[in-house]
Design a protein around this nucleic acid. Structure first.
Lengths: 341, 341
DNA sequence: CTGAAAGCGCTAACAA
DNA sequence: TTGTTAGCGCTTTCAG
């Protein structure tokens, strides 16, 4: 805490600059000098004050990642990946979560929650177009996830409509015809779930099937409990689907629990497909077929986007084209549609 | 980015100090002056540079939380709680994960991974006593979890031995006598798992039962896959337990999957108890009986510990007694021991 | 109640 | 190759 460059310089009988050179591994320092300074550093237990360095360089080496909910394994796993990739670039990650609430997302996007950051990776749920338009913070921002914005920020998201269609097609191929969608949101337009719902509807329609609202179960959240409630509500209303496509894995798993309680077999009676490919889906009594976004790639692209803009900040690269990046996804077939082998 | 206190001062025609006073809500500023300065601030879109402030004050407003693995919902949920509590104290959280590897834990404890922090909350797995003894970083450190250290740092952990005994007692009460322990570590002494293993052994012994090594399944990690492998290995070796106490919920769930694959019923053939009470355990085909540590309380205590020492840093409170804090835990009985009602 | 000036620890011109 | 010096933007004595 106490030892500064100056102290080391005095102790070694050299100038501050020389010590700085050693600390920063500057090329042109004689080995003898380096050794002498290094010794002083060791003796005094000197440790550079990063805050000062950051003030001077205008960078903090910290990027923030804001996700809706850390309790959702998808985001937790993604966060872990982001931390690792950021570390490769010598950045550390400040983590925040917004609860998927618009006000929190606005605070985060404006930098009011964490103001010491070089860049921001945000996974919005309710954030509106205008919230972002008014953004005054100048740290690079990259958006993650399903929302579509027509704004000058990099956006990384798999093609949700295509992914949803793939999931539904899989169920159709299995001969299912009454495919329910679990996890719609009705309270606000342009929600993430809209895209998946849209994909569900499009694929059904393309197959010449009806896509009645009775097969759509809205939820107010995205965890097990909401999935269970939605499934229970659907069954209670007399609807008897032969397949379920859920907004995410947590909802799918919550739904499977209810199906099991009601004596319905998965996949014999009701096939289930989720979304996210969280590890939980691989170890249930019935493993879960799901859409698997490539989290590693998403994390890598997100960090690269932020770091890239940080590096190019000097010239016009700052205003470089906003990119729409669409990482791959795949359908992972497991027992909830294929049955146990 | 560009607007500084000085710019605002010039724009408003006052001194820097006055602007600073307004920004910091200093008491003795005439309303007229405050309004004038505020207007200049708004017009210029001034935003304080926290890095500079931190350099001056010697604080960053950031505390780090390092957990073994964010992919484990227990830690993800805990991290979420820590972030929320820290926000109440106006701190933001830098998140790191160590993979439970000693070298990473040492780097974190020494502040080499994130050097811009005021304090650190660390949940170690392999970190040794000596690693900590040599710690040179002077940021307050609070330890989380099962390791016991005889060092001047606050330590927050439930009584693992007692918790393990509670779990085993529950199984004994159910009439089970061949209770296996899943998730031991053999490669190093003083591992977290040792305490739970010790509790398992103690309770069996107290009940007059043998605690043979054949009932102990070591793992090299703590997720579903390791639990599944351990369970499979146990069954393959010919051991046929009538109950399983797992090091954590993930291992328990992985084990249940294998039991199901082998046609063994839970809890009829084998009762299972986990540890952590992650939400995943509440929605499986068979819900999981588990030891539930109070995560909210743990998060609160951890943040309070760090923040408290930060505030008391001026006087002798710095060297205040290291406290051993033992939050409550409870046994949550679910289907994996009670069966479906 | 407000202004002037020193300096937190570091980096980067510029000199030597 | 190494030393000198001027700030980065802010808080904070100390005067006024």
């Amino acid at each position: 805490m106490k030892v500064s460059l100056k102290d080391v310089a005095e102790h070694a009988g050299v100038s501050i600059k020389t010590v700085s050179n050693v600390v920063n591994n500057y090329q042109h320092v004689t080995p003898a000098m380096r050794a002498r300074v290094q010794q002083a550093i060791d003796e005094l237990g000197y440790r550079p004050n990063l805050t000062a360095r950051h003030l001077r360089k205008g960078r903090t080496g910290i990027i923030a990642l804001a996700v809706p909910e850390l309790g959702n394994p998808y985001f937790a796993e993604l966060a872990g990946a982001v931390i690792d990739v950021a570390a490769e670039h010598e950045y550390t990650v400040l983590l925040d979560h917004t609860g998927g609430r618009r006000e929190q997302e606005v605070l985060v996007s404006q930098g009011f929650r964490a103001r010491v950051i070089d860049g921001l990776i945000l996974s919005p749920i309710e954030l509106e177009h205008d919230d972002l338009r008014e953004r005054s913070d100048d740290a690079p921002l990259v958006l993650l996830g399903e929302r579509e914005y027509d704004l000058p920020y990099d956006h990384i998201a798999i093609d949700n409509v295509a992914a949803a269609r793939t999931a539904v097609r899989h169920l159709l191929d299995l001969g299912r015809t009454r495919i329910a969608f679990l996890g719609a949101r009705t309270d606000r337009v342009n929600q993430p779930a809209q895209l998946r719902l849209h994909g569900w509807r499009a694929e059904l329609t393309a197959a010449g099937l009806a896509a009645p609202d009775s097969l759509v179960a809205p939820t107010t959240g995205w965890d097990h409990a909401h999935g269970a409630a939605a499934m229970a509500g659907l069954l209670e209303s007399g609807v008897r689907p032969d397949a379920v496509f859920a907004y995410n894995d947590l909802i799918a798993i919550g739904a499977m629990r209810v199906l099991s309680e009601q004596g319905l077999r998965v996949p014999e009676d009701v096939a289930v497909v989720g979304f996210d490919d969280i590890s939980e889906g691989r170890y249930g009594a019935v493993t879960l077929t799901t859409i698997s976004p490539d989290k590693q790639t998403i994390a890598r692209l997100a960090v690269q986007s932020v770091v890239g803009r940080l590096l190019g900040t000097a010239d016009s690269a700052q205003a470089g084209e906003a990119r729409q990046i669409r990482p791959d996804f795949s359908l992972v077939e497991r027992e909830s549609t294929r049955g146990r082998v």
